[in-house]
Amino acid sequence: MEAYLSTIIFFLIFASFYSLTTLGLNLQWGFTGLFNVGIVGFYAIGAYTSAILTGPPYPDTLIGGLGLWFPIGFIGAMVTSGIAALIVGFITLRLREDFLAISTFGIGLSIQLVALNFESLTRGPNGMYSLPRPLSGISESNLVDNILYLILCLAIIGAVYWAFERMVRSPWGRVLRAIREDETASAALGKNVFAIRLQSFVVGSAVMGLAGAMQGNFIGFISPQDFLPIFTFQVFVMLIVGGSGNNMGALLGGLVVWGLWSFSEQVIGAVLPATFNTEAGAVRIVLIGLILALALLYRPEGILREKRIVSREARLS
């Protein structure tokens, strides 16, 4: 019984990292139409920032080992991933939308290379270990620790969800959707399209960085292997399946797709012998790719359709 419970708690904690990242992407893609292919990069920046701020000192790194309190790590993660988004966004958000896609793809790869090669900061392929886990050690039991961490995750997701719901129902949120639907018309109405896109991009990326920090500090260990391009793809599938443009859909998509992903791992793992590990991984990725293709072709609006919102006071039937 306790084993099941602890598996479920562990699953939900991981689902919350994905759901939070999907929520960040929803602000960028769902509401503003910004195609970010470097999600994993912003996620990794957050994880590494928090690791440097909260982690123990290592004999072979130049800075780090500050051992700060975890909220400082989480806030730092949002700041650095936000700054990275600001730089990329500033250069590319004025240009054709493909350029943002290509540039964010580039930042995803570059962050991976920095994590792998800049050993005096990130310890390279050896990774950063013994990161402190928030709220651990309060009780004797590992299960209670995990439940507490899950509550922390849910509280953070709740706060971000609440803030995003307020934001998209505000005049600012209306401009986001106006830009997504018709950039020229929004500009003609005197809206500063570039500035508003940049704000949406930076806020969304900061949330992704926060999610990365939450994962890093939970596991207690990060290495470049934790931040592969497949992550970006998973998050996109989560958003498309859940319902792009609907914050609840984003959270739901994270949960559902992560559930399918974990479940398929169990099933394929039970069917195929362990020697076919690579093949099993490949089959899962092909399956999730098929889900995306079918969703794009047959149900582009996802599980939960976008709500038609004018403002928080008005209701549309």
Binding site: E279, A282, G289
Partner: peptide, 28 residues
């Protein structure tokens, strides 16, 4: 997707998904 006049971004995303699938089909 073209016939449905899908947004350019939808085509990019489809290509992005194909890229991962292609890589893994080759592995398989």
């Amino acid at each position: 997707l073209r016939n449905r006049k899908a947004a350019r971004i939808t085509l990019i995303m489809a290509a992005f998904g194909l890229s991962l699938m292609g890589r893994n089909l080759v592995t398989l």
